[in-house]
Amino acid sequence: MSEVLAAKPKGHIEVKNFSLAYETIEGPVQAVTDTQIHVNPGEFVSIVGPSGCGKSTLLNAVAGFLKPTTGIVTVDGERVNGPSAERGMVFQQYSLFPWKTVRENVEFGLKMRGMPRSQRERAARTLLGLAGLEAFEKHYPERLSGGMKQRVGIVRALATGPKVLLLDEPFGALDAQTRVIMQQILTNMWQRLKISVLFVTHDIDEAIFLSDRVYCMTARPGSIKAEIPIPLERPRQQSMMMSSEFLALRRGLMSLIREESLKAMGGEINDLGMQGLSIELQGHSLADVI
């Protein structure tokens, strides 16, 4: 157990000169270009950006599912060559194995590592206890609520003691109240485990509330538009979201993202205009209206 939950900063992610292009019939489509990011050991970093900007692509490359077209991805100096249990991942769609009980889901990574049954059962129970799920260990995921499923998802990803935790819009499908609770739980686990977190979201409040640093990406082809440190003190409380400091950060990020969203949508809005369905601008610029 102590090995799994040992609290020592680890997991230095480095993404250098990164670009990624998809091959299509019309030729390569650039999803992400010229991107450098890093996550220091034990740091919580978020990536925000307009939809389709390639933030999930970037995360999938760090996970090892996608090979960069140029550039390299390293974790603690080792080059990422494919998925591994060193980089735990949490998905938006939960992606729990429906044919395994909650505990069997959490045990999966340990089973793959060859840990004996009794040992991994004990480890899974302890972890489920931390997430308040011990009463559900024998349930199948289908019977859990969204928030509970995602707690299992997080616990499952942490069970093998990864160096870094990658989350791809993990709370996107949850209602607002559950989301706030899940953010608390995630912060709590991260502070105990002292592992690095790379968190992809389109929710600006969530990014500010959780992170030490936020990267803002441009519209496709995605690259880093800005890097914003979040100097809010920890532990963070829900009430901080009303503070002037928080709101200032929020305003700043908002306007950065809005610029990019408009760029991404610009074409579509002009197309509507051509069809005579245009929004009446009345002398304002498009940005003012939207």
């Binding site: 996970a63 090892g64 599912f65 494919g82 998925p83 591994s84 249990a85 980089r87 735990g88 991942m89 998905f91 769609q93 992606s95 729990l96 194995f97 999966f108 990574g109 793959m112 590592r113 499952r156 990803a157 093998t160």
Partner: peptide, 12 residues
């Protein structure tokens, strides 16, 4: 996505 989840957990 389930296959990816398994790969991330160290499954061969």
């Amino acid at each position: 996505v389930l296959v990816r989840a398994a790969q991330c957990l160290g499954a061969r």
